[in-house]
Computed example of a mutant assay.
Amino acid sequence: MSLIALDYFYTLIHLLIIGFNLFAWAFPATRRLHLYGVAVTLACWLILGIWYGIGYCPVTDWQWQVKEQLGEQNLPNSFVKYYADRLTGFDINPDFIDGLTLGLFLISISISVYLNFFRKKNSQKEQCK
């Protein structure tokens, strides 16, 4: 596989993971899987982050290795920052991007936990009446 194709592949994987982490809670068929997906993401950010830095993403690490081989330099720590800059043409503050990413991620986790654990209990109580 060429490096350019590999770069596109990692971009697709990133976008699928981000989309899944943000929205898979919305579909009953993927709610439980969403909980596992965000748990894996959180484990990478926090557990692998002990060794590689908080917020570490192995997919970003692999993609940045490819991008460096393609000649890109001064890559940010965040895939979201990189693509937000590319899409807007601006150099967006990385702290803003990290805060937005974390905030949306935590909202998604909160909704998922509610739908997977608390809403089921409330629905079961209502059905018993």
Rank of each mutant, 00 (worst) to 15 (best):
A29V: 14
A29P: 04
T30H: 14
T30M: 14
T30R: 12
R31S: 09
R31P: 02
R31H: 04
R31T: 06
R32T: 14
R32E: 09
R32D: 09
L33T: 14
L33Y: 14
L33K: 13
H34Q: 12
H34W: 08
H34T: 09
L35C: 06
L35W: 04
Y36N: 03
Y36S: 06
Y36W: 10
G37R: 05
G37N: 07
G37D: 05
G37Q: 09
G37E: 04
G37L: 07
G37M: 13
V38W: 10
V38Y: 06
V38L: 09
V38R: 02
A39L: 11
A39K: 00
V40W: 10
V40H: 00
V40Q: 01
V40G: 05
T41A: 14
T41K: 00
T41V: 11
T41Q: 05
T41M: 13
T41I: 05
L42P: 01
L42T: 10
A43H: 03
A43W: 12
A43E: 00
A43V: 08
C44P: 00
C44R: 02
C44V: 02
C44E: 12
W45G: 13
W45I: 00
W45S: 13
L46N: 08
L46W: 07
I47M: 02
I47H: 01
I47S: 01
I47W: 03
L48R: 00
L48D: 04
L48H: 00
L48M: 12
G49S: 01
I50P: 00
W51T: 05
W51P: 00
W51L: 10
W51G: 02
W51A: 13
W51F: 12
Y52E: 05
G53Q: 05
G53E: 08
G53Y: 12
I54C: 03
G55R: 11
G55C: 07
G55M: 05
Y56G: 03
Y56A: 06
P58D: 07
P58L: 07
P58K: 09
P58F: 06
V59T: 01
T60K: 08
T60G: 02
T60E: 04
T60W: 08
D61N: 15
D61M: 11
D61Y: 15
D61R: 13
W62I: 12
W62S: 11
Q63N: 13
Q63K: 12
Q63C: 02
Q63Y: 01
W64N: 15
W64Y: 13
Q65I: 07
Q65W: 08
Q65T: 13
Q65E: 09
Q65L: 09
K67Q: 15
K67I: 03
K67A: 11
K67E: 10
K67H: 06
E68Q: 15
E68I: 13
E68P: 03
E68L: 12
Q69N: 13
Q69V: 10
Q69F: 02
L70M: 14
G71W: 09
G71H: 06
G71K: 11
G71F: 06
G71C: 11
E72M: 15
E72L: 15
E72Q: 15
Q73G: 09
Q73H: 15
Q73L: 14
Q73F: 11
Q73W: 07
Q73S: 14
N74H: 15
N74T: 08
N74W: 12
N74R: 14
L75G: 05
L75T: 03
P76L: 10
P76R: 13
P76T: 15
N77A: 14
S78N: 05
S78D: 07
